[in-house]
Design a protein around this nucleic acid. Sequence first.
DNA 1: CCACTAAATGAATGCCATTCATTTGTGACG
DNA 2: CGTCACAAATGAATGGCATTCATTTAGTGG
Lengths: 229, 229
Amino acid sequence: MPATPSATADPHRPDAKPRRRVGRPASAVLDQEGITAAALRLVRKSGYDGFTMAALARTLNVAPSALYNHVSSKRDVLVLVQDHLTSFVDVSAFETQPWDQAVRDWAWSYRDVFARHTPLIPVIAVLPVADAPKTLAMYEAVSAGFRRAGFPQERIIPAIVALESFIFGSAYDVTAPADIFDSGSLGAATPNFSAAVASLGDQGYTNQADVAFSLGLEALVAGFGALRS
Amino acid sequence: MPATPSATADPHRPDAKPRRRVGRPASAVLDQEGITAAALRLVRKSGYDGFTMAALARTLNVAPSALYNHVSSKRDVLVLVQDHLTSFVDVSAFETQPWDQAVRDWAWSYRDVFARHTPLIPVIAVLPVADAPKTLAMYEAVSAGFRRAGFPQERIIPAIVALESFIFGSAYDVTAPADIFDSGSLGAATPNFSAAVASLGDQGYTNQADVAFSLGLEALVAGFGALRS
DNA sequence: CCACTAAATGAATGCCATTCATTTGTGACG
DNA sequence: CGTCACAAATGAATGGCATTCATTTAGTGG
């Protein structure tokens, strides 16, 4: 039975000094699961700017170099976090709902999860699925839903990829500042754009991001729905 | 007449030593335009990994600290590069083609430009338009095209945002490795996904990215086209 | 003519990911 | 039961990075 990684960390006292003597400890302090959990906790608390290998090591009460016995790089840790987060994406609707509603539920859930983790998007987008088992499981659930809905085999992956691209791009929108469309002093030179922006009213940008996401998602669902046989 | 930034750099000889004496030079060596051009050249040659303030300074034959008289951070340089690149996006079809074809031409052009510059996407996606005049000009041209095509004012921005989200996400796909969907040893556990992947044949991934982009784009064009009055 | 400011240098600063030598414990093999 | 390979920790480098600051020099406005 491997030691639970929290066994040596005491969250009550902020002593935090790595008071462990040199050499292999009696029972292992670290493992990938513990590193992943600590990384996610750290990101939630300090954001991706505050997420450094040194800070991660500190929360685990360990020297930074110890991490490299379990992961080979910081990117490796991000991959672990990414895959873990993917398990929070809700694919259950593919079992319980008609195809179009299942896609909606999945897409919103997927966007919401990664809107809080946009620095992972460049990592996910080019990550081989073999390196991320939980992500692969999500694809399997979605693919199965598409097949049951009558999609021709060779359209399933392109449709999922297109949806995913839209989802990733939309995740960034959620985090954009509210005044992103204020043209400032240049507004006079862009009458059409400015008028279009003015017609939006002054809902928060998150809401605006939701409007755009909904609009695009409905178009994709409608367009792809027509492919079913 | 300000000095052209290439005047002091000799691309024939790789001497490269910043042999300039301390103190303000007779005529300014740097300006934002020159920095932007050099940054783009550097990125094309060395990629975003090789793009450091020190390397940029070296190509300009200048000490790194000199850059900070003209930009306030590395991010600032990236914003300059981003805005410059946006002027390469082709919006001319909005003047010459019917709306649907104009959107296609613009979207493909936009994707192709930023597929080679994906590290800029996190910057663009949350950048206020007021900080990027050429980007603003692109939005104006696109907005005008949508208005002329009969879009209701308040749908124009959401539609453009949705298209842009799809475009940014799709730009990442272009750069993904060819074997991104190989499930390796886990393939047995994901029959639906594996079958869908197998049905794709073995075209390169760039082509696969094009298939997905085309599929999604057509769905969005069709869906948004229905909004016109 | 003089003060101010702009634009360069070069020397720090502090942070970061990563590597390496070293120490110590564990488990497998003979 | 001993020893030997390996696993897992420490702590001290290493080299690179963006950025800052004091300093120097040169134009510019009053």
